[in-house]
Computed example of a mutant assay.
Amino acid sequence: MSTTEAQASPLFTLLARQWRLEAEVQACAFAQDGASLAYALADGTLALVSMEDPEAAGVRWRMSIEDGRSTISPRARPVTAPASMPVGEHPLRLAAFGRSGFLVGGATGRVVQIGADGSTRVMVEHDSAGVDAMATFCEGAAGARPTWVAASGSVTRYDPEGGTARAMARYEGTARVVAPAPGVERVALGFDASLSLIDLHITDPHGAAGEPFEIPLGPVEALAWSPDGRFLAAGLLDGGVALIDPATRRVLRLPDYPAPVRTLDWSADSRWLVTSGAFRTIVWAVDGGHERPKTLETGRSGLVAVEAARLHPHLPLVAAGFENGMIIVMAVGQRDELVIRDPAPGGLRELSWSGDGEHLAFHAAQGWAGVIDLPAHMFKQINRRVP
């Protein structure tokens, strides 16, 4: 396992911990309490990173009393490698579960709970097919966030605080992605040719669900509900975004993306939708009406497509990762960009902010993975919270 990379920028070297893992990374997730980070590898291994870093960038940050200039001193010791945990199933699906653990599932259909101490517990074994998709949905207080698992033709909700896990909806085929709706008992499933919306009847002791609303869209890469539950956004493999209003069943297509739209993020007030898939970060201003949204010019256009774009959890900042491995951070509606990671071997695959917004995890092709420290005082000029 290598912890270095050629041509790393000085800023990246100061801010990041990076590793070249033994296999391709398929997914990453922070624990809900932010104490750990997990990477799911293509060989059925889970790589666990402790966020207790005695040499984090915030610890090495100094401000001069004389001129107010900030500096970050280099690390004194090598970066510690992630702990490796063989799970034995691949490809792996991964999601946060409870305050400090994770759920993983794979081709054999087992759903396994991983504890903060590395302990494992088999939650269920599906006997007919593997796990299709997982999603952890934020509702209620911290630590009370259910995780939804699509496997063997059923969607099951697991409550980390002792609730009974049971099938909430049935579906046919293989789901590519699952997304529970906020505030209502509804789940969205993306497939190779369509999107399905299913209303759940939780009063039914058998977990029966209503007839699904099917929308032919082509392969669905990503799903994201607006926090107010008004819209569902779908990122498409053939390029473009679909905005669905479940109340009216109206579908608005936002086409003309040159690459697949693999990531979608909403602002807390449901006014901004941030997407990948273009030669710049696209931020749609969604006013809640039926007009086509307008874009907020954010960052600069280039010659390389954005593979992942993620909105900061508290500030109007977007992190974007590109096909050439570059990572930048920019303010919504501003052209200025801060290059965090220069172009590097291995195209960027995914980005993920920690809950406090002070860490940005990434993984790229060729097994590259890492976490970047971005202390809040780096962005002290950004004092407006995401509405």
Score class of each variant (00 low, 15 high):
M63A: 09
M63E: 15
S64N: 08
E66R: 12
D67T: 06
R69S: 14
P74L: 05
R75L: 03
A76K: 12
R77Q: 13
P78M: 09
V79D: 11
P82D: 02
S84P: 00
S84Q: 14
G88H: 07
E89M: 15
R93V: 12
L94P: 02
A96D: 04
F97N: 01
G101S: 08
L103V: 04
V104F: 09
G106H: 05
Q113I: 07
Q113G: 07
I114F: 09
M123Y: 00
E125T: 14
A135Q: 14
T136W: 01
F137N: 04
C138M: 12
G140A: 05
G140H: 09
G140I: 11
A141R: 14
R145A: 10
V149I: 10
V149W: 06
A150R: 02
A151S: 14
A151K: 08
S152M: 01
S154R: 14
V155F: 02
R157C: 13
P160N: 05
P160L: 02
P160F: 06
P160S: 07
E161D: 11
G162N: 09
G163H: 09
G163I: 06
T164D: 10
R166G: 14
A167Q: 00
A169G: 03
G173Y: 08
A175V: 13
V177I: 14
V178R: 01
P180S: 10
P180I: 08
P180V: 06
V184W: 05
A188W: 00
D192M: 12
D192T: 13
D192L: 13
A193E: 13
A193D: 15
S194F: 14
L195R: 00
